[in-house]
Simulated scan of single mutants.
Amino acid sequence: PEFVKKLQASFTSDSTIHIATVQDLANKNITTQNATNTWTWTATNISDVTCAVSNHYDWDAASVLVDDKAHRRVAVQAAFADGSEDFHHYVQFARNSLDWFSHNLPGVPYPFPKTTSVQGFADMEYPMMVNDSHETDLVFAQLVQDHEIAHTYFPFYMGTNESRYAFMDEGWATTFEILIGTAERGKKAADDFYKQFRVTRWIHGPHEKEQPIITPSPDVTFGAGNNAYGKPSLSYLALKDMLGDDLFKKALHVYMANWNSKHPIPWDYFNSMKAGSGKNLDWFFYNWFFTPYYIDIDLDKVDKTSGGYTLSVKNIGGFAVPFDANVTYADGTTETFHQTPIVWEKDQKLAVINIKTSKEVKSIVLDGGIFMDANEKDNKWVAN
């Protein structure tokens, strides 16, 4: 009964409650000592069930408010070996994840009554549970847990087929990973990790064997991980950049409302985002999902005009990416002109950018940020 009281108290607690500690385990008084015990779990509207059993793990618990209108809280728990320092933080890490995902992006209240983080060996997601390895780096540990919990929405809430279209779940988890990471650690740290872990591995080639993201996962013979994680994530972030945060979120909600639990395929995503945004995105989705493209833009030439400067930017790699034109003036001042992927709508091979300024330009550098360029040497122009 005393452990039941702790568990029940955790359902309304923001603070971590230690339901079972090392001393409790040593005393062997957590479970009623009957010849046989039966545990019963009940869940509704769930795509699958997983459970974990241990007689030597700590058990921590708390809860978090995920739905402000309904005043709904969900249970947040962790089970782990006492010597794993990172897992002592996992209840609060998970509370932060569920709070952020519920209130920001995807901005859908966590749809299940509970989440549990169990120390294991796989870094793997399950409905209402994640199985994470012990990590000595707390920042990395939180990032991995964020990623796995993000899978609650894709694939589980949506019911997407991750074995056929891995980009429909891993791509989204990778996207949410950088977005929540920005909130947790700041833009530079989140961007640096994303570039190192999700983009650097493939952006510098070779690109001759690239396959379209739409290729069914079992049929991908080159860069399977890139097609599942980095490339689709960049497509989602590029669309967010082009539509703007509010319209992107509105369209995403149309997709999720239309298709949760109904096993959507990529075309359901494409059509829902078009309907939700009110935009014709056919060209964008074709560009990102149906071509063997990569990222490589070239600042081909710069012409001075009466109102400023005109930039001719070639798209050698093909992907419709956002980028900044970072301008340094002759007086030493600088200015950034951001370009969303819309600049590629009419001509995906050449974009003409007009920079309005009365100042003399000394140099211009194109910078894609996390949209790393395969060849940065042709991204700079210097005035004669």
Rank of each mutant, 00 (worst) to 15 (best):
1 P>G: 15
1 P>I: 14
10 S>F: 10
13 S>T: 13
20 A>M: 11
21 T>E: 08
26 A>I: 12
27 N>K: 12
29 N>Y: 10
36 T>C: 09
38 T>I: 15
38 T>L: 12
39 W>D: 13
44 T>W: 12
45 N>F: 05
47 S>C: 12
52 A>T: 14
53 V>A: 14
54 S>V: 08
57 Y>P: 06
62 A>T: 08
63 S>G: 06
65 L>K: 04
68 D>V: 09
69 K>M: 14
73 R>V: 10
79 A>G: 15
85 E>T: 13
94 A>S: 07
96 N>M: 11
97 S>M: 15
104 N>C: 08
106 P>M: 03
109 P>K: 07
110 Y>L: 11
113 P>W: 11
114 K>E: 14
116 T>L: 13
118 V>F: 06
122 A>I: 11
123 D>H: 07
127 P>R: 07
129 M>K: 05
129 M>Y: 03
131 N>H: 09
133 S>P: 08
135 E>Q: 14
138 L>V: 11
139 V>G: 07
141 A>Q: 15
146 D>S: 14
149 I>W: 01
165 Y>A: 02
168 M>H: 00
168 M>P: 03
170 E>G: 00
173 A>Y: 00
173 A>N: 09
174 T>G: 02
174 T>M: 05
175 T>M: 14
175 T>A: 13
175 T>Y: 03
178 I>N: 00
193 F>I: 06
204 H>R: 05
204 H>N: 12
206 P>S: 09
207 H>D: 02
212 P>A: 08
223 G>C: 00
223 G>H: 00
225 G>Y: 04
225 G>L: 02
227 N>A: 05
229 Y>I: 00
229 Y>T: 02
230 G>A: 09
232 P>I: 05
235 S>Y: 02
237 L>G: 00
245 D>W: 10
246 D>Y: 01
246 D>L: 09
248 F>S: 02
251 A>Y: 04
260 N>T: 09
261 S>E: 14
261 S>H: 13
264 P>T: 02
267 W>G: 10
273 M>Y: 11
273 M>P: 06
277 S>D: 05
277 S>Y: 02
278 G>M: 13
280 N>A: 11
284 F>S: 12
285 F>H: 04
286 Y>V: 13
287 N>Y: 06
287 N>T: 04
288 W>G: 05
293 Y>A: 10
296 D>W: 01
302 V>C: 10
309 Y>Q: 08
309 Y>A: 01
312 S>I: 14
314 K>N: 14
315 N>T: 02
326 N>W: 07
327 V>F: 07
330 A>F: 14
330 A>E: 14
332 G>A: 07
335 E>F: 03
338 H>W: 07
348 Q>H: 12
354 N>M: 05
363 S>E: 13
364 I>R: 00
367 D>S: 06
368 G>I: 00
370 I>A: 05
380 K>C: 03
383 A>G: 09
384 N>Q: 05
